[in-house]
Each structure stands twice: as C-alpha cells, then as structure tokens.
Nucleic acid binder design. Structure first.
Lengths: 114, 114
DNA sequence: TTCCATAGTTCAGAAATTCGGAACTGTTGA
DNA sequence: TCAACAGTTCCGAATTTCTGAACTATGGAA
C-alpha cells in the first residue's frame, strides 16, 4: 500500500475542494470529522446518511477528501484516524469552508473553521 | 429545442453550485458574467482561458451553470444573453459565491455578490 | 512463529458521465 | 425562400465513478 498523499497548504486547489464537497455523502463525512474536533475512523463514518456506504466507496471518498487537503489521515494501529484540516484550508481560503458548510445547513464550529 | 430550465431560489442546491464551480473553465465563464454586471453571449465567453472551448462543450457548461442557478439565460434575437444570479444565490447561501470566487483569486464585485 | 480478525486499500468490470464534432433548431436579414 | 449565425442536441469515444472481491497491513492469541 502506498503512503497517503496530503497536499501542502500552498498546493491546495479550490477546484479540488469544491469538487470534493460537491457530493453530499462526502460533505456528511467531512462535517462529521470537522464537527468532532477530534479524529474519526473510516468505519465509524460509513453509515452517516440514509445508507451504508460500501467500504471501497468510502475509501475512495476519503481519498478525495484527503487529496483535496480537507482531511489528514494517519494510521494508528489497525485503524486510520482522520482529522480535519479546516484551519489550514481556512488560512489559505478564508471563509470558504464555513460558507460551504453553512450552505449545506451544517454550521461549522467556530473553533474548527472560523 | 426545449425551453431553458432555471431553478427557483428555494430549489437551489449547494451540491449543484459546488459542482458547477469545481471546473475552472466554468468558473472563468461565471466570473466573466458576474464581473460584467451585464449580460454576455456564449460566443463571447468561448475563449476566456488558454484555449477555445468547442461550442458544444460551452453549451454544456452554460447548462450546468444555469441549472445550478448561477446564471440566467434568455434568448434575445439570435443570441443568448446570460446574466448572473449572484444576488439570488447570495440571499439563499450568504457569502458562498464570494468565498468561492475569492478562493479562485477572482474577487467578486461588491455589487454582484456581496 | 503461525493463524485469525479487523481496518482500510487496490483491482477490475459495469455503469454513468463528460467531451466534442456533426447535425440540427430557431432567429434575423437579404 | 435562402443564407448566415447563435446555440442546442445527438451520439460515439474517452474518462470517471461505483462497488464486490481480492489484497495489504497491523495487532492479538495460541
């Protein structure tokens, strides 16, 4: 398995972020991770909505979020701890994540994306 | 040719807006329309970037922007006048368009999206 | 060490989407 | 009636997405 790729803050691309968050399922995942403040495992994120996301699909979703720079994933034992990169993204694109989450009716926690 | 579809403000979907603006070519088109303040024809929008967009592709792009509720197109004689729906979108999702255009390095005019 | 369970990734084929040239529609003007 | 023009629709090729199955990696038990 190849190591996970995480873009540097200066390499963040708005199109990747918008694309990643143009899928409600990914938004639910991201909002959960960002809302927790802490990390979350993939498995814990697989049944947020009205269906159970197949794990191969979930893995793809996580990859899209990761490569857009929205989350950081690091292996911890058997599982993967995912946490949001809201502050980094916000430093690069101020207000973007907040506006997006608000539009989805998922008001961001001030400490995470404000 | 079927009549153009434009969603009502209350039917705007964040996912459609983010998807539409996850393509830099569409962002360029939208920014041009929004920035003009006035309307623009499709043809005038076809060579904004570093390539000429084929007109069938351009037509698709316009459709995506239109159906996301970002622009309104109305036939005027032979051509189509397109104008932005920034204010309507902004009334529904405050700050969203501004944050997105800013992230793309296309600061929105205050009168159009603020 | 070997085996098993768990967490997540990668593979691969089917389904869906996107791209763009060619054909078409609708409007204007000669 | 015809030609020119603006934009849409069609349709086949290329790309992307989806997801079950196979695989990798880690940890714990025997």
């Amino acid at each position: 398995m190849r190591p996970l790729f995480h873009p540097a803050v200066e390499d963040l691309k708005p199109e990747a972020i918008l694309y990643a968050l143009s899928d409600p399922e990914r938004v639910a995942i991201f909002a959960q991770i960002a809302g927790l403040g802490s990390s979350g495992t993939c498995t814990a994120l697989s049944n947020l909505g009205d269906r159970v996301i197949p794990k191969s699909s979930l893995s793809q979703h996580m990859k899209v979020l990761r490569e857009a720079g929205l989350i950081r994933g690091e292996r911890q034992g058997v599982e993967m701890r995912n946490h949001s990169r809201c502050q980094e993204v916000d430093s690069r694109f101020p207000g973007l994540i907040g506006a997006i989450l608000s539009a989805y009716g998922r008001p961001p926690a001030a400490t995470n994306a404000g």
